[in-house]
Structures are given as C-alpha cells and as structure tokens.
Design a protein around this nucleic acid. Structure first.
Lengths: 258, 258
DNA sequence: GTTGACCTTGACCCAAGGGCAGGGTGGACG
DNA sequence: CGTCCACCCTGCCCTTGGGTCAAGGTCAAC
C-alpha cells in the first residue's frame, strides 16, 4: 500500500509512453519521484502537472532542451517564449503548405526546375512541331545552364526565344533535330553546319551568349558540359557541333575549346 | 580538364549540403557518378535531375527509405504515392494548427487540463469570493480526479456544482478555506467537521461520489491521492479531513481507509 | 610556392525516443 | 500455494537526416 501513481498511469494520463517519461527524467525535465520499497517510481499530482506542461510544450515543437528553462523561468519570459513558439509553428505550417504546392505541381507533371518563361518557350517548341524527345533534350540543357551559369541563363533563354521567333532558324533547328539520326559521316552535316553558321553570323544576337561565358573562371568546362551533354547518344549531333564550331572559329568567333 | 560538376556544385544547385548528397549515395537514392583521376565525383545532368527529384520528395517529408522505390516505380504508382504524401502533409498541417491553438490557450492562461464545465465551476468559485489560491487547489484536485478516475470525474464535478448552488454549503466551504491557516489543534476544527458531516448527511447527494470509487480495484489508493493531496502544506486541512472522516464513519458511511 | 577553397573517407554526435534483453513485482485466479 | 500476466526496473543498441571533426589529397590563383 503506497501513495502515488505508477509510471504507466501518469504516462497514460499525459498521453505519452512510459519510455518518454523516463526520457524526461534523464533530461531533468521532470524530477524523479520517490520510489516505493520495490523500486517503482511513485508519482504525485505535482509531478503529473509538470509532466503535462512539458508534454504540451514538446507537442508544440519546443525542443526538450529548452523546455526546462522555459518552465522554470518567470511568467513574462514564459509568455514571450510562447509567442516565439507560435511564430515558429506558423512558419512551419507555411513551409509545409508550400511543399504541398510543389508536390501538386510535381504530380501534375509540371516542370519543376525551370521558371515560367522557360516553360513557355519549351511549350512553344512543342507547338512548332518539335517532338517530345527533342523538347525534353532542350529542357535538360536549360536546366543545366541554369545550374551552371545562372547569371547567363536569361540570355541563353532569350537566344532560344529569339530563334523560335524566326521561321528560318526554326527550320534549321528542325533539320538539326532530323540530323540526330543521320550517320556521323553524312556529308549533309557539313552543309547544315555551314548554313547554321551563316545564320548565326547574320544575326549576331543569336551568338551573344557564348561570349558571356568568358566572364566565368572555368568557362570552358561549363560550356562543354552544356554543349556536349548527351552527345554520346547521338554521334551525328556531336559531329554537327564540331563542324559548326569549326565554321565559326574560321571566321574569328571565339569559342571555348572542350 | 574533366567533364562534370563537382559535388559542391550539384549540392549548391539542389539546395542541399555536400554531406547530404553523399548521404543519398550511401542510401542508394542517387547513383555514385564517375570519378575523375583524382577521385572527385563528377556529376552529369541526369544526376542533377535525379538529385532534385529526391530532394523535392524528401523536402515534402517522404522518408528517404521510400523515395528510391517511388522514383523507380511506374508513373501510376508514383502518382498514387504523391497523393498519399499530400494527404500526409495536409494531416500534419492540421495537427500543427491544432497545436498552435492549444498554445494560444496556454498563453492566454486557459485551463488546459479540464473540460469547459469544470472551468465554469471554478470560475463560479472565484466569483463567490474564494481566493485564487483556493480555486487553484480545487483545480488541481479536479485534474487529479480526472486522471485517476475519469469515469467518476463527472459525478465529482456534479457534487462541486451542487455544493456551489447551496449557500449553506458555500459558507461551510469558505470556513474550510479559512481553516487552512488555523493551528491543527484548534478546537474549532472539530466543530467545523461536525457541521460539515451534518450537512453532507442531510443532503446525501453530496456524498454520492465516494461510493462510486468502490467499483475500482485500487480505490483506496486513488481516493487517498485525491483527498489528501497537498495536505502536507496545510496541516489544519489534514486534521479537518481526518475529523470529518471520523464523523462520517461514526454514522456508518463507508469511506476507504488511507 | 604557398594560400585558401575544395575534395576524399571515416568515425562520432544530435534529438526524441523505440525495441529488446534479462530480471524483479504485484495482483488475480485456480 | 503456485502460476499467470501485466507491469516495473536498468542497460544497450537502433532509428532519421544529416552535422561536425579529423587527417589528408587536389586545384586554381596570386
């Protein structure tokens, strides 16, 4: 016959597990109560009140390490701390809501990694009759560009938009797409490269971007990564690129090597 | 001169730390990329896309252990999983919002551990002129009762309400409150105990509660815990209780011992 | 040629408990 | 009286999603 509740009873009342109560003891959040003659902890009502206070704060997301000081502080500091906790909760809710929005976009198959404007350009490509595969390739290139050289991403995108607004350039792009399935030794490749070079030189705006790369320390590496990405899957495209670069360099355009 | 981004670059782009990327490698969420000749990891764009996918799901709270299977599964299972994740997020938001509400109540000094009806009774006590300390004592007793014998909490509360509706009983309660500051040997204590016993016997409803305790296995322990709680701080109250119990037992009322 | 920023692996640390082992207690039932 | 089951005790390792520290290798720049 002993006074006090057992650990299981207080735990059940406070809505926590026995393990949790012992954890709080170990952290010093709730004092260890007296033991009965068989070593069981026996709790009185003040222990219970304390446990529920701790539980309420912990449940609201206050780190256990802070709770002790909070409960033992004066009521004015306690009130201030509660304000703070509430602010943190509100932030967390907003954050989760934002994540949910992102997830919804993901579920809807939206393009997560690109801004609205880039998505519009890609949609335009699809409308213009470029196949889904080719659009996907462009999308990846844009993502890469944004990752590697965010400060020139805009001009990269502007170049694409400008090209898409020019029927002649669109026609050339479509021919490039078709060229991906050609043999790497196909003589038409050089023909196409020459036409492309002529077009780019006629409308220098379309060439603006590579120059901006130069401002970067490891420009060549980044250029190579974007320009040659996925070329292993289309040898003809690699060859076309090579030929185009040669044409441009021949007339003095400065293009990074590799 | 090597292809590919370093781990720091992909990490920065994906908005995670270098350590996190390596963590994902160890869990098999993102394949280890090729190494350059000095052993550095070198990432291509597919790695980056994968990393961002993982990051998006992880950020939404999907456990890392599930993400691999999710991304490698078909799109229909992926879509279903996204639904599930979104549901979990919504639940979590609701939970946090509820916690915030509780915190607000706590900050406003509200009585968290008691239902509305009990709070009303306590407010009534305050209105009737019982001091804040005494009301707080009653509050603790109610909390204890609810924790220990939830099924008789209602009748415990009903008894309190009934007592507060009876001016004679209220007068006796006030005298009990005053008695807390008396000397434990004060002869007025037995006088008061006799008056209380007479009142309780005259209105048997006020005595209903202790009988219900009997239905409990360890009734006596629980009764003692509630009835004698905080008595160590007011020896006169302990003495008064003792005397009252003696009076009641003397006329045959069955009260648990200790 | 040295500095500073980056990379490598490995080992340990954190919250907030969960799970399990191995053993002691208490009350109820037969 | 024994036996059963639920509960209690301590102590140890496990978890998730990384952070931190150590000890050393590498790269680009001044």
């Amino acid at each position: 016959m002993v006074y006090g509740l057992t650990i299981g009873q207080v735990a059940a009342f406070a809505g926590v597990t026995v393990k949790t109560v012992r954890h709080y003891h170990r952290l010093g959040l709730v004092d260890e109560p007296e033991r009965d003659r068989s070593g069981y902890r026996r709790y009185g009502s003040p222990d219970m009140v304390r446990l529920v206070q701790v539980r309420t704060l912990a449940g609201a997301g206050v780190p256990l390490a802070e709770i002790g000081g909070l409960l033992d502080a004066g009521p004015e500091r306690f009130a201030a701390a509660l304000d703070d906790v509430e602010r943190r909760l509100t932030d967390r809710i907003a954050e989760l809501t934002a994540r949910r929005t992102v997830l919804r976009r993901l579920a809807a198959g939206d393009r997560l990694l690109l801004p609205e404007r880039a998505c519009a350009a890609l949609d335009l490509m699809a409308e213009l009759g470029f196949g889904a595969d080719y659009v996907a390739l462009q999308e990846e290139a844009l993502i890469l560009a944004r990752a590697l050289v965010p400060e020139v991403f805009d001009s990269f995108l502007a170049q694409l938009e400008r090209g898409l607004g020019d029927p002649q350039y669109v026609a050339l792009m479509k021919r490039c797409r078709d060229a991906e399935s050609w043999d790497p030794d196909d003589p038409r490749l050089d023909e196409l490269a020459a036409a492309l070079a002529a077009k780019l030189l006629a409308d220098r705006e379309l060439l603006a971007m590579p120059a901006e790369f130069e401002a970067r320390p490891d420009a060549a590496t980044r250029y190579g990564l974007i320009n040659h990405h996925r070329e292993d899957q289309a040898p003809a495209a690699a060859r076309l690129n090579e030929l185009l670069e040669a044409h441009l360099r021949a007339v003095g355009v400065d293009i990074p090597h590799q």
